[in-house]
Write a protein that binds this DNA or RNA. Structure first.
Lengths: 357, 357
DNA sequence: CTGAAAGCGCTAACAA
DNA sequence: TTGTTAGCGCTTTCAG
């Protein structure tokens, strides 16, 4: 066996040791080194195996991932594609980071790598598009594609392996994981109805998000079923980043018949509602009940603590990831259009109460 | 020119078109294709160029990133390594997601990819270690290495290009970006002192985080300078996830001489303090002033809104990334041990007031 | 049981 | 102006 110094000298000067460094230093062929290090199918004499193992360790050899990927046609890397909201602020919003956390956890467990695809999507013809097609990732998790984007069909054409999170609503033959939005909205609405509210408003998220019509129509259905009038002026289209929810709430509260409860599209909107209520001298929950959606960590910390529909973000992310890897590793199975809806639950806190009037 | 159908037939059946598909379909050599597509140095006849371009487009050819990386010895990918805190929950805490957002933004602007290195670090000898050495990334952003870990020196031995975020305190010759912890603590402490507080406690973060001793010693220095006694029982060692801050605050409040103010190691701890105070019937800020660190989004939403030291997380992340890419692309320059401290600022809200006694 | 050689898709000398 | 060829580091038949 070579002493350490000798083997060090053998190793190619710039950069890491390669498989042929190991082969040379252990006196075998690179084919054998590869076979040993991969626990390959071919039987190897124990002495040889040891020699290779030791040489590899001494050279602190690590197979080059790129070279491997090239021949294996598999990068062992997953991509995650977030739609760029709020000009690049992706990770710091509660929804995205929850999903990401789930994807990341599952990815790690499955021994895959995770890389971001962040360039704004601009259609097939764009340069940005290249990243999807250059073999960087074995599969892609697409998060919350807007309903007015053609990204999914474009990506299908490429033949990429992928799963969609929060893409319900348009079935285009890609497996999809999502919270059951209709159920979530139903839970929230039922809660308000059972408290005795009759004048209930809804401030939704961005109109081009798939969840929005689902939540809205479940909301109106419940109202109708409970023989409660659905007033058009109570149906407000907002944005998930809460940008104009404050003003919208002020408007609602200025009505001759203001709502006694608001079902907010998410917690960010709900908190804007709370601020608007406070600034209008309207007490929550005495004069106004508020229900959010997402059960973000901050919901428990605000005052009063927010009643909210909790959705299992990390589970959604990790289920999607597990499905994706399964698709990659068993491409034979056909799961086009499979849909997995996870159940939300209502977390009742102190922002909701029976109407005072 | 080949009609589309013909060129489609040329293309290798499984998978994407390759450079030789384009070469064949446009009747030139692969070298020319490469040269055209990379705007290479060699002059090309305009007609040829057009033929190549059109063939590439018809075949919707995209150079394979893996093959490219192999020959270029550059993946155009950055890695980010978070120390695994709270068993994998990385992205959903305010600090980590702020840094990540900054790194991600800069990475995107610089046209690099970002991949996660999430396997828990377990020393050089571990399998997990392989990922760092297999050439997957051109450089690495290391976030908040614990002071009792030997990761940095191990990684230096590998010869990886990297920059450290929140690694101040131990200069081991790697460029480092961080907030000025001492200044942040000084701002917080000065604020409390100038309000008239004499009995000020400090609940720190995890003892093995580099920021902790820096913040603590700035705190005690200011106290000493102001001729305020540093009581040992007021110096509490906590954790950044706030896990036992609630109980620690209760203990502090039970003292015969309880503190009138607490400087919390971060906002999570500060919020736990607020809960403990409320549950003890201690009013914030009347009976107890609280200052946090980080200025997390939730700080503005809690009640009362939290006074906190704001640190520029995304700037830190993007500065680190820019430095890293510069190191990758201009390896000649020597920047060992360079240290960049960004300035924090104090955001005064309603959790601080003069002491009532 | 082990090795030689082909080739993954691409870039970059070096020729022509 | 364009083509030929030799690798990048690795896996994998196919021979010995």
């Amino acid at each position: 066996l070579e002493p350490i110094e000798a083997s060090m000298r053998i190793r190619s000067s710039r950069g890491n040791a390669t498989i042929s460094d190991v082969a040379r230093s252990s006196g075998v062929s690179i084919a054998t080194v590869s076979n040993v290090l991969n626990n390959g199918p071919k039987p190897v004499k124990e002495a040889t195996r040891q020699r290779v193992l030791i040489a590899a360790k001494e050279l602190s050899y690590h197979p080059n991932a790129t070279a491997r990927s090239l021949v294996n046609r598999r990068t062992h890397t997953l991509g995650i594609f977030f739609f760029v909201v709020d000009s690049m602020v992706v990770v710091t919003n509660n929804y995205a980071s929850g999903i990401l956390q789930g994807v990341l956890t599952a990815t790690t467990e499955l021994k895959y790598n995770l890389t971001f695809f962040t360039r704004p999507w601009a259609g097939t013809k764009q340069t940005a598009f290249a990243a999807f097609q250059d073999g960087r990732a074995d599969g892609l998790v697409i998060v919350a594609p807007p309903s007015d984007s053609d990204i999914l069909s474009d990506l299908i054409d490429i033949g990429l392996t992928m799963v969609v999170v929060a893409g319900t609503g348009r079935d285009i033959g890609i497996p999809c994981v999502d919270v059951d939005d209709a159920l979530g909205a139903t839970l929230a609405t039922n809660h308000l109805i059972s408290l005795g509210h009759k004048r209930i408003a809804h401030i939704s998220g961005d109109p081009n998000m798939n969840s929005v019509p689902l939540r809205r129509s479940a909301f109106t259905s419940r109202l109708t079923e409970a023989a409660i009038e659905v007033r058009p002026e109570y149906m407000v289209t907002g944005q998930y980043n809460g940008s104009n929810a404050y003003e919208q709430t002020l408007s609602l509260l200025r009505f001759k018949n203001p709502p006694t409860a608001i079902f907010a599209g998410n917690d960010t909107i709900a908190m804007a509602c709370m601020h608007a209520a406070r600034d209008s001298g309207v007490s929550v929950p005495r004069d106004l009940s508020i229900v959010g959606f997402d059960d973000a960590p901050a919901s428990a910390l605000v005052h009063p603590p927010l009643t909210s529909v909790s959705q299992p973000l990390t589970e959604i992310g990790s289920l999607a990831t597990n499905m994706l890897v399964d698709m990659i590793e068993r491409p034979d199975v056909d799961r086009r259009g499979s849909l997995h809806l996870l159940k939300p639950s209502l977390v009742v806190r102190e922002s909701t109460a029976p109407p005072s009037t």
